[in-house]
């Protein structure tokens, strides 16, 4: 297991280096931020002064060298926009998104296991058809549309939930999570149903049935446990995709998370904050991938053996 883990970590660390370089280059492609930070009427002298003060007049390799040497000491520079350290901004924003994504995936997985099992229990039944149609529809609704409808219907129309924001009790989580949830939930229901249908016809389930186990026990006790592996794989990839959703959800609901920080940093050409934000996301995705692999290796001995040497 340790060998497996070590190999996996080393081989995944290489992409991280590329991510660090890639985000630096992408950021520099977007041009010099001077115009954004000085008033329209600033003089050429003031522009040159600003460029020099923030190192934008250095050549790109020099800037890259500064960035890398600082990053090696875990210093990601100072945000142009707020004057704060980029590390502080990212560490403030990251837990918000992590919680949002964690809650979403937890609910999506639990919900999908429940609904998917019900559907698979009686394939082609009414429940199965309704679950299939609803989950497919859910997966194809644009998230920003869902979010704004949620605000208008549940926030204003029915007056059940707060419209937005992070100030308040548990009810403030409902709309953001629901918006993030719809797509992973829709996809996972289908995956659970697919693998459950397979598992329900497997020999060991037949054995369990022939021994007189009840339907609930067969579904939840035997088949479900075996469907966890594919669900885990897909859930891992869906979690990665949640970063995209987080950009939209955090923008609409005013959550100070990493998605909002990234989009603001791009629009404001705030390179330091952008680089730090993308790096922490990449590290998280990297850790998540390893976690999924380890879980699978724990669950399924074949995966452990199948790791490429």
């Amino acid at each position: 297991m340790t060998t497996f883990l070590r190999k996996r970590i080393i081989s995944s660390a290489v992409p991280l280096v590329f991510v660090v370089l890639g985000v630096f280059c992408l950021a520099r492609l977007t041009g010099n931020p001077v115009d954004l930070y000085l008033p329209l009427s600033a003089t050429p002298g003031q522009r040159a002064e600003f460029s020099a003060a923030h190192g934008f007049d250095d050549s790109i390799p020099v800037q890259l060298w500064h960035y890398l040497t600082q990053a090696a000491q875990l210093d990601f520079g100072t945000s142009l926009r707020t004057g704060q350290s980029a590390t502080t901004m990212v560490l403030d924003a990251f837990p918000v998104t992590l919680q949002l994504a964690g809650m979403t995936m937890l609910l999506a997985i639990l919900g999908a296991l429940l609904v998917g099992s019900l559907a698979a229990h009686r394939p082609n039944s009414l429940i199965d058809r309704i679950a299939g149609l609803l989950s497919m529809t859910a997966a194809s609704i644009p998230d920003f549309w869902f979010a704004i409808m949620g605000v208008l219907v549940f926030g204003v129309g029915l007056d059940l939930l707060p419209t937005s924001g992070t100030l308040g009790g548990p009810e403030i989580w409902v709309l953001p999570i629901a918006t993030l949830l719809i797509r992973p939930f829709g996809v996972l229901v289908q995956v659970v149903r697919g693998s459950m249908v397979g598992a329900l016809s497997a020999p060991y389930v037949k054995v369990a049935r022939s021994k007189g186990a009840g339907a609930g026990r067969v579904v939840f006790g035997h088949a479900l446990r075996n469907s966890v592996t594919p669900v885990l794989t897909v859930a891992g990839d869906l979690t990665v995709g949640l970063v995209n959703g987080a950009v939209i959800v955090e923008t609409i609901f005013g959550w100070p998370g990493i998605g909002k920080l990234m989009i603001d940093s791009i629009l404001q050409r705030d390179f330091a904050a952008l680089q730090a934000a993308v790096l922490i996301t990449a590290v998280t995705i990297f850790a998540l991938n390893i976690l999924v692999d380890v879980c699978q290796a724990l669950i399924d001995p074949r995966v452990r053996q199948a790791v490429p040497a």
Partner: peptide, 25 residues
Amino acid sequence: SRGHAVLTFLTSGIMLLTSACAVAN
């Protein structure tokens, strides 16, 4: 081992859930 992993997964999820509520409050 699988049962154990699933259990761990659920537990950690629930911990996350409660900590999230704590932040909101």
